[in-house]
């Protein structure tokens, strides 16, 4: 019991961070599933969502600011795809990846310009930022809500992908890009839709994440972004449940490592895990084995 009360805070923080990574990881895994592109800018879109929140609460009430953040983030994600990725659809994969890195560089520098390089204080969202006590541990309510919200969102997303027409189109596109085009699927709208969902979830993730870690800086998205990508690889790229489970595992292990006093290595652990996964089981936990055609 003593052990539990000592380690429960880390475990809870881990589950909560894991849920937030999961929301980002879904964006990576869906985009990679269809375009075979690591969307390096995804972490920065997450950061933008944080910044938009910071600035929008200064001009509008909270109940308007939250939907506003969600809508503008989705818009940014949509625009990034249209401007930076769509023109390169027939280009080699390396060019698209470089373009993604370019977008990430642009968004970070834009944020640096707007914020002036100072960390911005994230506003307190009422109710979810309230301090509560669970099993003798004081924490913010967001810590407890996150896993449930994540599960709810993931279930509805899986439903969307399995049961609706656009979901079927997305599955087809990720199976075979060219054939699905031949079958009359409007590939551009499917890709746009993927980016919209990804950015929406990243925006929700940012609401939760920054309620816990309140400093928003231009590079704040880079690390969670990379970790979420690792989570997506770990779970098997293209698989949504895999990404979510991977994200929870990474979030929890990271916080356990922090709890053991090895904070320096909490980031390093994530990448070590990535390398182990890529070497031992490149398809991840739930990924489908893909064969290379010569």
């Amino acid at each position: 019991m003593d052990w539990l009360s000592k380690n429960l805070p880390y475990l809870m923080a881990g589950i909560s961070v894991g849920g937030q990574y999961a929301l980002i990881a879904i964006g990576y895994t869906m985009v990679y599933g269809i375009l075979r592109l690591i969307n390096f800018a995804h972490g920065d879109i997450f950061m933008c969502a944080g910044l938009i929140m910071v600035y929008s609460v200064t001009v509008m009430p909270m109940y308007l600011a939250i939907p506003f953040v969600l809508v503008t983030t989705v818009l940014i994600g949509f625009l990034v795809e249209r401007v930076a990725y769509k023109p390169l659809r027939s280009a080699p994969r390396m060019s698209v990846m470089i373009s993604a890195i370019g977008v990430s560089y642009l968004l970070q520098n834009l944020a640096l310009y707007i914020t002036g390089g100072l960390a911005q204080q994230y506003p307190t969202i009422p109710w979810i930022s309230d301090v509560i006590t669970v099993f003798g541990v004081t924490t913010k309510r967001v810590t407890v809500i996150t896993p449930f919200l994540v599960i709810l969102l993931v279930v509805s997303l899986v439903f969307l992908i399995q049961k609706t027409k656009i979901g079927m189109a997305m599955r087809a596109a990720s199976k075979d890009f060219e054939t699905s085009q031949l079958m009359g699927i409007k590939i551009n709208s499917v890709i746009s839709f993927t980016f919209i969902i990804g950015s929406f979830l990243a925006a929700v993730g940012s609401l939760l994440f920054f309620s816990n870690y309140t400093g928003v800086t231009p590079t704040v998205g880079a690390m969670p972004g990379l970790k979420a990508f690792v989570a997506a690889v770990f779970g098997g790229i293209g698989s949504i449940p895999g990404a979510v489970i991977g994200a929870f595992i990474i979030g929890i292990s990271e916080n356990i490592i922090k709890g053991l006093g090895w904070t320096t290595f909490s980031d390093a652990f994530t990448f070590a895990l990535l390398i182990v996964v890529l070497i031992c089981k490149p398809t991840g936990l739930f990924g489908e084995a893909a064969t290379d055609k010569v």
Binding site: R36, L37, I38, R93, M94, M97, L226, F229, V230, V233, T264, F265, D267, A268, T270, F271, A272, L274, I275, L278, I279, P282
Partner: peptide, 29 residues
């Protein structure tokens, strides 16, 4: 030794990750 077995974007992410690990190790107290 481990990383060069990987292909294209996985290699990119793994080398990026190793660079971060190197940085963490050099900053270790």
């Amino acid at each position: 030794l481990p990383v060069l077995r990987l292909k294209s974007d996985y290699l990119a992410i793994a080398t990026l990750g190793f660079a971060e690990i190197i940085r963490a190790i050099f900053q270790w107290d």
